[in-house]
Design a protein around this nucleic acid. Structure first.
Length: 759
DNA sequence: GTATTATCTAAGTCT
DNA sequence: TAGATAATAC
């Protein structure tokens, strides 16, 4: 038997061996948190706790799968597969399917993603004749979502003076009505959104004490990972579930709480000890992941925050390289300098590409790096962004499947009723919606009885609607006796979706065809896997497939190819991961910290924690890069370095001299062609007379024309006089005395000087 | 009712 | 810039 206890340090071991009662494991970054969790589960199993009485809640499905794997290695597969392990959302969706009837939902309820939710909100705003520019779907959704995460029902919302005042103050007084209508429509459609999966479980436990008791008895041991990122709704669930046996172990790090925007309460972890009396606390403080310099630099950042559990994270690894600060003039140059650095470090240390990760604050920052990497033949892969299941064509096909599973799903019906085009236009769809809402009848029921609608629709339209209805009906029948794969191929052939896309061979359509084929593949794989497990057709239905798929995250869908590629992802999705070399890019004020966070201290602290998370992903080497200009809305905007750059204690950084950014990687042969294209990039922007120096209207002169005695302008140093030039272009160096910045030596090729006056 | 073109406006992180 | 929506022509 695997002697797992010997692989733990003292505190880790104490945490693992503490089986009963509430406990809190405060796990600093890189302190072996996953190891503790897995070994603790193994330890429970070894102490005769039945696998199916353990509930382990993780943050992503991927984390759950990995943990299952690791537990299986210690205790065997049969045991591990019976553990209730998964995300809050997937575990409780599973339970809700069993208990749905008690809440008046069908057990085959569909799950709306953010886009479905927003389009429902859009429809309601329109039906209520409200101004869509004021009631923006995102803002309304955020409001509704946070209400749900705090267990505020529409009724309570409408009675809450505070909430109504807040809405009045933000000029959106009708939100409570939208919320109510939204909840009504979801219910009528047999639909839950992400927040409902947690909210409805709370309702279930509140209203059906026997059900609560049933699950209290099932889940005798509860473990929660990433506890710092749970919201009130999640907190209430685990509080209720654990209140009988009180065997609840939560693991987390307050310094890594980064999801308050979706309702996470850092207070959950800060107050845990008060909340669960007689709770034991274990602090894991030794970081095994990173070098001392990285840990120290990260600590110097997080110290600026006020709300913290005291702990002393330290590393006994080598001291390591200092944090490398990279400064670029443009976002393109940032991509270039970072790829230079990757090439450099890779060569000198014999690393592989998958030892490198680029972490950014916002998804759209990936673009520049994609371009640069493509240009320079650096293999990469991107996590996140538009996930596979959010692509239009994939959603279209999925909408068919959703309707087949749950005919009440109005949003999905509207999506496919005229896709592919079958002559059912906007007016008809609007009429159907009105009819459905006014009479409390699902659209599908209207379609079934279309001949009874009299003159609402003209004969031609009725015929088209009946045609649509027949297609779906037939598919519904077909789905009864066929597995998911057979069904999806049938759907696609019946509707001629692929056929139509192929008939018009635009590059976009080719891509769409590929994606649909990929979807078919995924379904086929799903069925194949099930075939190995069981003969039971009911396990291979499209419904089962949809259940698995609707809660996948972008992290889960990316296959873990063994390919040697640089990873690109947001800092949020990098949580829990580690890389030898990490580049935190775009560390600029108003981007990171994000502009809405700059003035809100709470928000700013969260951004700082995010920066902390980013730095602590690295094992060996961290670079922090920023640019002085960046494309935004199709224009170049000048930007300034983030306050976070200065907040890193300088003894742990490699602070570059003001002007040496240009020397990085200058030996690289691709450098020159790159910079010439970069210059073009800046030149093509509109140029106004120089009033103030900004990246937007700054156009450098041809460096070869710069001569001694000239007055020149530099984007950062301002105006100065060229006093000397050494060497031949492109190696030539100019010495310039700037009025405000003093004497600087600049490599002319890179310096971007504008000639103001020729002596 | 549908296809094409013109105009607008937005990007913060995710289950 | 690019995707979404509105306006226009067919």
């Amino acid at each position: 038997m695997h002697n797992y206890l010997s692989e733990l340090n003292k505190v880790q071991r104490q945490a693992v061996e503490n089986i009963n009662g509430p406990s809190l494991v405060v796990a600093g970054a890189g302190s072996g948190k996953t190891r503790v969790l897995t070994y603790k589960i193994a330890h429970l199993l070894n102490n005769d706790v039945p696998a199916n009485s353990i509930l382990a809640l993780t943050f992503t499905n991927k984390a759950a799968a990995e943990m299952k794997e690791r537990v299986a290695k210690i205790t065997g597969y049969d045991n591990s597969k019976r553990i209730w392990m998964g995300t809050f959302h997937s575990i409780f969706a599973r339970i809700l399917r069993v208990e749905a009837d008690k809440l008046g939902y069908p057990s085959n309820f569909t799950i709306y993603d953010a886009e479905d939710t927003k389009s429902t909100i859009r429809a309601i705003v329109k039906d209520f004749n409200l101004d869509k520019d004021i009631y923006k779907p995102n803002a309304v959704y955020g409001r509704i979502s946070s209400a749900k995460n705090n267990l505020i029902t529409p009724k309570y919302y409408a009675e809450s003076k505070d909430l109504l005042d807040q809405d009045r103050y933000s000029k959106k007084p009708e939100i409570h009505r939208i919320y109510k209508e939204y909840a009504k429509r979801c219910y009528a459609s047999g639909v839950m959104d992400f927040d409902d999966l947690l909210l409805k479980i709370n309702v279930l436990f509140r209203d059906f004490k026997d059900v609560l008791e049933k699950y209290q008895n099932i889940f005798k041991y509860i473990l929660v990972d990433e506890y710092q990122d749970t919201n009130y709704s999640q907190y209430r669930i685990i509080k209720e579930l654990s209140s009988k046996h009180k065997n609840i172990c939560v693991v987390g790090d307050d310094a890594q709480s980064i999801y308050s925007f979706r309702g996470a309460l850092i207070e959950n972890i800060l107050n845990y000890q008060k909340d669960f009396p007689s709770c034991k606390v274990f602090k894991l403080e030794q970081n095994y992941r990173s070098t001392q310099n990285i840990v120290n630099a990260a600590n110097s950042i997080i110290e600026k925050n006020k709300d913290r559990i005291k702990k002393n994270v330290f590393s006994e690894n080598e001291e390591g390289d200092k944090v490398n600060i990279i400064k670029a003039m443009s976002d393109n140059e940032e991509g270039f300098l970072v790829s230079n650095s990757i090439a450099d470090i890779k060569r000198t240390n014999n690393y592989k590409y998958n030892d490198f990760a680029i972490l950014y604050r916002t998804n759209n920052q990936s673009r520049v790096f994609e371009e640069t990497f493509r240009k320079r033949n650096i293999p990469y892969r991107i996590f996140g962004g538009l996930s596979f299941y959010q692509r239009k064509e994939v959603k279209d096909v999925l909408a068919y499947l959703k309707v087949i599973v749950n005919s009440k799903d109005a949003e999905s019906i509207k999506r496919i009723i005229n896709y592919p085009a079958r002559g059912i236009g906007k007016t008809t769809v609007d009429k159907l919606s009105k009819l459905s809402l006014n009479n409390d009848i699902p659209i599908w029921e209207i379609l079934k009885r279309i001949e009874q609608t009299g003159t609402v629709f003209n004969a031609g339209t009725r015929k088209k609607l009946a045609g649509f209805k027949n297609v779906i009906s037939e598919l519904m029948d077909f789905s009864q006796n066929n597995d998911a794969y057979t069904l999806i191929t049938k759907v696609i052939s019946e509707t001629e979706i692929l056929k139509r896309l192929k008939s018009d061979n635009t590059p976009e359509n080719i891509n769409r065809v590929e994606n649909i084929n990929e979807l078919i593949n995924a379904v086929s794989e799903f069925v194949e896997n099930k075939n190995e497990e069981t003969e039971d057709l009911s396990e291979k239905t499209i419904q089962k497939y949809m259940e698995e798929v609707s809660l996948l995250t972008s992290m889960d869908t990316e296959s873990d190819e063994e390919n040697d590629k640089v990873t690109l992802m947001t800092i949020h999705s990098s949580k829990g991961l580690e890389y030898k070399n990490v580049y935190v890019v775009g560390v600029e004020q108003n981007l990171f910290p994000n502009n809405q966070a700059t003035f809100d201290p709470k928000n700013l602290e969260e951004e700082r924690r995010l920066f902390y998370v980013a730095l602590t992903r690295a094992e060996k080497h961290v670079s922090v890069s920023y640019s002085l200009s960046r494309f935004k809305y199709g224009k170049i905007e000048s930007t300034t370095p983030s306050q976070f750059v200065n907040e890193i204690d300088p003894q742990f950084t490699n602070n570059p001299l003001e002007d040496n950014f240009s020397s990085v990687g200058s030996s690289d042969s691709t450098g020159e062609s790159y910079f010439s294209s970069s210059n073009k990039f800046i030149k093509r922007k509109t140029l106004k007379p120089l009033q103030k120096i900004s990246a937007e209207n700054f156009e450098p002169s041809n460096p070869e024309q710069v001569e001694v005695g000239m007055s020149v302008l530099h984007l950062r140093f301002g105006e100065g006089e060229v006093v000397a030039i050494e060497g031949e272009y492109p190696q030539s160096k100019a010495t310039v005395i700037f009025d405000n910045a003093g004497k600087k030596q600049l490599l002319l090729k890179f310096a971007k000087l504008k000639i103001v006056e020729k002596d």
